[in-house]
Amino acid sequence: MEADDDKRYKVRAIDLHAWFGTSHSLKGITMDLVDRHVTAIIGPSGCGKSTFIRCLNRMHEVVSGARAEGTVLLDGENIYASGIDAVLVRRRVGMVFQKPNPFPTMTIRDNVLAGLKLNGLRTRDPDALVERCLRQSALWEEVKEQLHKSGASLSGGQQQRLCIARTLALEPEVILMDEPCSALDPIATAKIEELIHELRGKYTIAIVTHSMQQAARVSDFTAFFYLGELIEYGDTDSIFTKPSNPRTEDYLTGRFG
């Protein structure tokens, strides 16, 4: 039974706590991400949803004064166990940030290859990898003529897709997205959402979003966070049509948040 669950669930957080200094921002989250599905995490600002996914690739602890406690199983292995190198965890669990952050000092091509270069990894055919990742992130047609321009020369939406391509190049198993569309216009947002659709089935994706419509559109499962706690978690359809917790319903109907 346990082994079956480990197979079904790519990532399992068990009693996960997180702090910023003395403020306790994640209060014992236990939640699983289903392998090769999209899980949306919604909730009002400050509810800990970003903190939660940043704990899943050990990016939370990068901020000074921040720490996390608890268990996060990645394929059954606790990434918070002593002796686990956070750097290796992050190679397997990629992340896309709220604000597009391509490396401005690198070309578009080098941005895609940045993960490999940073890790000192070689690839036999870098050009093929660049093309594959850019195609996967639906950016290839727009940039194939300008691979040697700076990553910063693209529009915001293109930059974000470049960041996704950069993440894909490392062939991660899990992709965490922290409000990836909040800095983008509706057309760019639609493109990213389409892209998430393409990527499901290949990757386990967790996406934090402020937009309930977006959660409903892109995700298989939805979790509702409030004040650092997981209030409700289930498949997206039932969360949106018949939430079992009154606070979820209040949030979804816009009564607070």
């Binding site: 990016m59 990068v62 750097v87 992050r90 604000k99 391509p102 940073l118 490392l170």
Partner: peptide, 17 residues
């Protein structure tokens, strides 16, 4: 910008890298 540091770390870079 901190976002660049985070981008590098999230790609599995060490601090030195």
């Amino acid at each position: 910008p901190n976002t660049l540091r985070e981008a590098a770390l999230a790609l599995g870079a060490t601090k030195w890298e």
